[in-house]
Structures are given as C-alpha cells and as structure tokens.
C-alpha cells in the first residue's frame, strides 16, 4: 500500500507519531523506569479519565460543535450515582447505567438549547458548565463522599499477573473502560451511518440539511454521547480516587480539549480521528511522565508541557505552510 502510506506520511497523525516515537526512544534510553510494564500500566490507568472524555469531545468537535460543560456533567453523574450506591448498595451494571443516564440527560439539555434555540455551542456549554456546576456545589454544599461501597472501592482486576517484585498487573476498571470507550467511539464514527453523518455535518452543515439529514437527531446523539462518556469517566475517576469530590473535576475541560485538538481535530468541524486523539493524549501523557522520570522538578512540568504544545503546533503549522507555498492565497 505505497499510496496509503504516502497519504499517511502527509497526515497530522504521522507528525504526532514521529514526535511520540522520538520521545519514547529518548526516554527509554535515558531512564530506566519508562519502558517498564508498571509505568505503562500506571500511565494508562491515570490517563483513562482524560482519554474517555477526549473520545466524547472528539465526536462533538467532528460534528462542528464544542462542549466544555462535560466536567460539570461528570461531577454530577459521579455524585448522584455514588450517593445512591451508598444508600441502596447497587451493582456494577446499575451504577454505570445510572451515571450514563445522568450524563445523557445533561447532554440532551445542551443539545436542545443548541439546536432548538439556535445558540452557538460555545455559549451554551459555558452557560451550562456554570449552571450544572453551580447547582451541584450549591445543593451538596461541596461535601465530599469519602466512603464508597466496598465492592466499588475494590474495583476489578482481570487477567491478574504478578511479577517477580510482587507487583500485580491486569486489566483494571480504568483500562477496561478506556479501551471500551475508544473502541465504541471508533465504531460509531467509522462503522455506522450515523458516524459518517456526523463527519458530514461537521464538513458542511448546510449541505447536510439540504440532503435531508435529521440534524436535530444528530445533535442529540452527539451531545448525549459526550454526556455518556462523562458519566463513564466520572465513575472510573471516582474508583481511582476512592472518593467523590464535587469540585475537583471542573477545570480539567481544557486539558481534554488540548489532547483532542493536539490530536488533529479541528474546531471548525469535520476533521479528527480516534487514532489522532489517542496520539494527542499519548503525547501529553508521555511528556508529563517523562519529565518526572527525568527528575525534572514537578514544579516545572507544566512549563515543559506548555512548551511542547507550542513547539509541536508551531512545527505543524510551519510544515503546512511550506506545503502551501507558492499557492496564491498565501
């Protein structure tokens, strides 16, 4: 497939992958801890929350919209579900179903406001972020939930394997959910007619309307899917943190956005892939992890993360410019 490879080489993903590979090779050579099973396992576990949200946001961006209220949605889903789980002693299936339903319901509010009142998605989601978050903290008084049901705290561990140092690995809740959500997102986007319609909608909204797409239904689907991912992400975050705090998730929306946009999704809509998003997230994760392993003071890790974002986006822009050079419009 030389032609496909040539196409890939010109893509944003190729750039990202190259940067990541350089980082990975560099870190593997320079540190002992990077390329260990334990480190990779920890990385996956700790970035699952952002990753799941990123898969939801990707769908929203592809459709040509934006959502930044999902951290508030996640906080609410988490809080309600864990409150009820404590009270009624539910099971895995029910808690995930419940968190998903809460997320979907809040996503539907966004979709209805955006589509029926014809307000831009950025305005709606800034507003609903404040409304959801404000009401949550107001009603709960900002109180943490420290004790979670024991079966929930204990989590799951599939295919457990214990190495020589008695450290155990396996498929935990976070990794499982991350894999499921990425797969689901990929399936929806690439293997269903609805997914292709979401791309089409983001590519040319007016044409989609003219062709008889049901735009309202697509919007509902997109924002509800974002809500669903927020619900799922919120639970695996609660499981990892072993507590529920209504105020810790809000503020992370821009981290998620950074991962998705670094992964090549465009805010103008129609562009973005699950693979790209995974790469964007991986870049952020590997970089942050690498800085710690390299012994860079954790106080400076943000600085380097920002620096790498700036350098990589500038490099991408420069290469795109060079390609366009000679074209009249530049």
């Amino acid at each position: 497939m030389p032609e496909n490879f040539a196409r890939f080489r010109r893509s944003h993903e190729f750039w990202l992958l190259s940067v990541i590979l350089i980082l990975v090779v560099g870190l593997s050579v320079m540190t002992e801890g990077f390329l260990t099973l334990q480190n990779l396992f920890d990385l996956l576990t700790s970035y699952a929350f952002l990753g799941i949200l990123a898969s939801g946001l990707l769908v929203v961006l592809i459709s040509g919209g934006i959502d930044i209220s999902f951290t508030a949605t996640a906080s609410i889903a988490q809080y309600i579900t864990m409150l009820l789980a404590n009270k009624y002693g539910l099971n895995w299936f029910i808690v995930f179903a419940m968190a998903s339903v809460v997320g979907i319901a809040l996503g539907a509010i966004n979709a209805v406001l955006i589509d029926r009142l014809n307000i831009s998605s950025i305005i709606v989601s800034i507003a609903t972020l404040n409304i959801f978050y404000g009401l949550l903290v107001f009603i709960t008084g900002g109180k943490y939930i420290y004790s979670l049901p024991p079966w929930f705290s204990h989590g799951i561990y599939w295919f457990e394997y214990v190495d020589a140092d008695e450290i155990s690995y396996g498929i935990n809740l976070q990794i499982l959910a991350l894999a499921v959500m990425f797969t689901l997102t990929w399936l929806i986007l690439n293997r269903t007619n609805i997914g292709r319609q979401i791309y089409a909608l983001g590519g040319n909204r007016e044409a989609a309307q003219r062709l008889g797409f049901n735009v309202f239904r697509l919007n509902i689907l997109v924002y509800c899917y974002m809500g669903l991912t927020a619900g799922v992400a919120s639970l695996i975050q609660a499981q990892l943190a072993q507590s529920v705090a209504p105020t810790v998730l809000v503020g992370k929306e821009l981290d998620v956005l950074a991962a998705v946009v670094l992964g090549g999704a465009s805010l103008a809509g129609g562009v973005g892939t699950v693979f790209g998003t995974i790469l964007g997230l991986t870049l952020l994760a590997v970089m942050q992890n690498g800085l710690i392993l390299l012994g860079v003071s954790s106080y400076y890790s943000q600085f380097f993360v920002g620096l790498v974002i700036l350098l990589s986006v500038s490099a991408t822009a420069l290469s795109a410019r060079r390609k366009r050079k000679g074209v009249m419009t530049e």
Partner: peptide
C-alpha cells in the same frame, strides 16, 4: 446548488452514496 453542497472532508464515494444510505442507526 452553486456551492455544490458537498462534504469536503469525505471521500468521493461517500459524497455520492451518503444520501442513499441515511436511514436509522445501522452499520455502514
């Protein structure tokens, strides 16, 4: 229409076929 109403981000095949395969939720 003059603007052609195409989807620039999709392939030729999809642009031609998409309208014939709308319908409910199903696999492509």
């Amino acid at each position: 229409y003059q603007d052609l109403s195409l989807f620039p981000n999709l392939t030729v095949a999809e642009n031609i076929g998409v309208g014939q395969h709308l319908g409910g939720f199903h696999s492509v």
